[in-house]
Write a protein that binds this DNA or RNA. Structure first.
Length: 236
DNA sequence: GCGACAG
DNA sequence: ATCTTGTCGC
């Protein structure tokens, strides 16, 4: 992704919760919730994104791992070290991770065809979670895959891989609880940008051949935590 | 009013 | 998010 960080610098990054809320309100209308977006089989470069944090400092490492959508082989990856500049606040989570993740994306040789984010998309109090934020700022199709539920309720789902139930919040379907492995807790899939929910779930299942989480997410998770350990906190 | 709350 | 080894089970 050789092009512009112009999008990110086009506006000042918020420092307060009030400013962050304003940014979400302004960007929310720009989310493409229709899609349908690229189907599995129509994409080649699928990216997994994740961030790891140090326990005794504000150091962090953001990673992006691009996999071949079919073989799941690693095509490319990038890691960026940084500092957490925004506190963790449920609902404003993206403001903590997006800067570092965008920097990591900029370091790639070529833009991914799809983004799998470690967190929610529309399944968010104001319908603008991390996956929506990353999708809108990059213009790339994005999917949110949360390990835990954030908003909404859902009916019990069957025990087999592939079983799913809509996540409903305030009367609207904001995502889906999707079982990716038999008898294992479901993951929470939601639209990030430019992909519809069915397509998003199809991608998640296609990228989850063995474990509970998509290979993209697992690879990115491992990469950023290894990077955080091996690369000592260079502080004074 | 109280608690819960993506990572 | 992070602290954390082995272990029981498919």
């Amino acid at each position: 992704m050789s092009t512009s960080s112009a999008i990110a610098s086009a506006e000042e990054w918020p420092r307060t919760a009030a400013e962050a809320l304003a940014v979400q309100d302004r960007l929310r209308p720009t989310v493409d919730t229709v899609g349908p977006g690229p189907q599995p089989g129509e994409v080649r470069r699928v990216a997994g994104l994740d961030v790891a944090y140090a326990e005794d400092s504000d150091e962090l490492a953001a990673a992006v791992v691009v996999l071949d959508a079919h073989t799941h082989a690693v095509l490319e990856h990038s890691v960026v070290h940084g500092v957490a500049t925004f506190p963790y606040v449920p609902g404003l989570f993206a403001f903590r991770e997006v800067p570092a993740l965008l920097a990591a994306l900029e370091r790639l040789d070529a833009a991914p065809d799809l983004l799998l984010c470690d967190g929610q998309g529309l399944a968010h109090p104001r319908r603008f979670g991390l996956a929506c934020h990353l999708g809108v700022l990059t213009g790339l199709p994005a999917i949110g895959v949360g390990k835990t539920q954030f908003v909404g309720t859902y009916e019990p789902l069957g025990p087999a891989r592939g079983e799913a139930a809509d996540l409903v919040d305030e009367g609207e379907v904001v995502g889906r609880a999707l079982r990716t492995r038999d008898a294992v807790k479901p993951v929470f899939v939601s639209i990030g940008h430019g992909v519809d929910l069915d397509t998003a779930c199809a991608h998640v299942l296609a990228l989850t051949p063995r474990y509970r989480l998509p290979e993209t997410t697992r690879q990115a998770d491992q990469l950023c935590r290894r990077a955080l350990k091996s690369h000592p906190a260079a502080r004074s």
